[in-house]
Amino acid sequence: MTPALELSSIEGGYEPGLPILRGASLAVAPGEIVALLGPNGAGKSTLVKAAAGLVPIWSGQVFLNGRDITRTPAHRMVQEGLGFVPQTENIFANLSVLENLQLAAALVPKDRRGELSKMFALFPDLERLRKLPAGRLSGGQRQMLAVARALVASPSVLMLDEPSAGLSPKLIGVVFERLQAVREAGVTILLVEQNVKAALAIADRAAVLVEGRERLVGAAADLAQDPRLAGLYLGAGLEAA
């Protein structure tokens, strides 16, 4: 079966001659949740940013449902069906909650435009807060808005960079439960996470990225038991030293 998202031997980085991604490969099957794990600075954010068109890819390819989108400009990705929720600053703080969603909806063709009422059904808090400037939302509400903003464009694949960052364990539970609902609605998910336990609990499969390459890929349940997982987190520190 054609993967929903396929990253094939990606090399790239922010400045020429300073590679951050060193041949990273990863495939996400339709309807799957795949967790992308790895130590700080491994290049997880860089990899999803590269897939989203925000970081230059020097070699390798990105396929979305079999289509090569490696050189597609970032602003056309939503129309292709690739959604992305960045790690930080992932909402427009100067726009109201409603405007954040209206803008995202208006930027995709009508046939992709999700209904705001459905978003509000999925994230009831946002409806109550719709008039508020998004910058005034709490951390958890922000993450909800960031996810809703991406979902309004009806992506076939959604990449999320650490949606649990800075949230209380209880809120992480809520966010992840919503992600399950999103997946059940047919959206394929690539989830970058530091919170290994929570991520492996909802993911089908997982990959561990170390120094810009995937080092360990497998079923989430297996990885959760795998002693090498902790080793890679520690080992990365030792190798770097």
Partner: peptide
């Protein structure tokens, strides 16, 4: 208008604007 919101979004965060589909 969408143009106006896109302008304000770009002023706030150009990278996120591109992610959301704004042709900066």
């Amino acid at each position: 208008t969408t143009l106006g919101r896109a302008m304000r979004a770009t002023a706030m965060n150009p990278a996120l604007a591109r992610v959301a589909g704004v042709d900066v």
